[in-house]
Amino acid sequence: MSFGRRLIQEDVSFRVRRGEIFTVMGGSGSGKSTLLRHMIGLLRPCAGRIRYGGVDYWESSTEQQDALRRRFGVLFQGGALFSAMTLYENVALPLQLYTEANPVETRALVRFKLGLVGLRGYEEFYPSEISGGMRKRAGLARALVLDPELLFLDEPSAGLDPVSSRRLDDLILQLRDGTGASIVVISHELPSLFAIGDNGIFLDGDSKRPIAHGSPKYLLEHCDHPRVQAFLRREPVRDAGTHDKVVQDR
């Protein structure tokens, strides 16, 4: 995959199983968000295939792509709520577009989803009237409203306080257990990665390829790549070059 003519990552290959929480790890600028854009059908990868249950997304017809996308739920980094609509209208929109739910049921469903993310009572607020963390949770409610089989979360806990972040992790785990949905989480929040990740991939910005596969906990114990260890332990990178430099500085 590349951004314009600049190569971002190559040889990215992984498989997300049903009911799994798959984490995409990596430092800033390593291509996590670009990978997400490939996966949710916003950006065509310059080489390779992305398959959903055997169906190649980018080789499918437009109708097939639409049908596939309807099974996704995506939480964007900033929530991506429609600013001209209230939270209620934002969450209700997918229901109005794709289901036959009548107004009373729509109301019940929207209240339920907003309740799941702890935002009941905020139906009539506009996105500009609530905080960033609340916008994010409302975005999650919108992503969840059609009970997606595959949920993509872009930096779900970034910008949240520790308590909300913890609650969001619990919610993600419970959603997975309750629905059996697969969840792909793009994140560099360590506590949250360790709490929820069943499997994962580590994208490295320097070598421009994934350097480790496995759950964050597994990588912490078993992966001895210095950059992976540095990331997961929040330590400076200890490869030969920097180490020498540190010694010299002393």
Binding site: L116, R120, G121, Y122, Y126, R167, L171, G178
Partner: peptide, 21 residues
């Protein structure tokens, strides 16, 4: 159980709807 959990999450964790637009 799972239905009860989901229901409890939606019902309990919401703040009181004191804040009105």
């Amino acid at each position: 159980l799972n239905l009860r959990t989901v229901l409890k999450m939606a019902d309990e964790l919401s703040p009181p709807a004191s804040a009105r637009a």
